[in-house]
């Protein structure tokens, strides 16, 4: 299962790689990383219909996670990937907006990796 993680923090990459070391090794998950919304869209253009799941931060410089979500829902209506939003601002307004725009799930930072792992394994 290919998962694209979108976050402006580059350390997210090594964190995910270490946290999901066993799953990656076992071939359950395959992670790709994009460090901005723009990069994420570009990646999706280059790898159409590969990404099953997108984990995106909301607060990013440039294109925000919400904008990215909007673009994904409009640009890729067919074979839509699952989108999970992750944010430090877990308030109701943010949550409602993301869900309204078609997010499949909503997580607040700090991410509980055990919970995330379970959710991902369910897919």
């Amino acid at each position: 299962m290919k998962i694209l993680v979108v976050d402006d923090e580059e350390d997210v990459k090594s964190l995910f790689e270490q946290k999901f070391r066993r799953e990656i090794r076992g071939g359950q998950f395959e992670f790709s990383f994009a460090f901005s919304g723009e990069e994420a869209l570009e990646y999706m253009q280059n790898h159409p219909s590969e990404v099953v799941m997108i984990l995106s931060d909301i607060n990013m410089p440039g294109m925000s996670g919400i904008e990215l979500l909007k673009r994904i829902r409009t640009d890729h209506p067919s074979a839509p990937p699952q989108v999970m939003m992750i944010t430090a601002y877990g308030d109701a307004a943010n949550h409602d907006q993301a869900m309204q725009l078609g997010a499949d799930d909503f997580l607040t930072k700090p991410v509980n990796f055990n919970e995330l792992k379970e959710k991902l394994l369910l897919l």
Binding site: E9, D11, L15, Q18, K19, A88, K109, P110, V111, F113
Partner: peptide, 10 residues
């Protein structure tokens, strides 16, 4: 909070 999350996670 963000850097702290990294510290804790790592």
């Amino acid at each position: 909070q963000n850097p702290l999350n990294f510290v804790n996670n790592f």
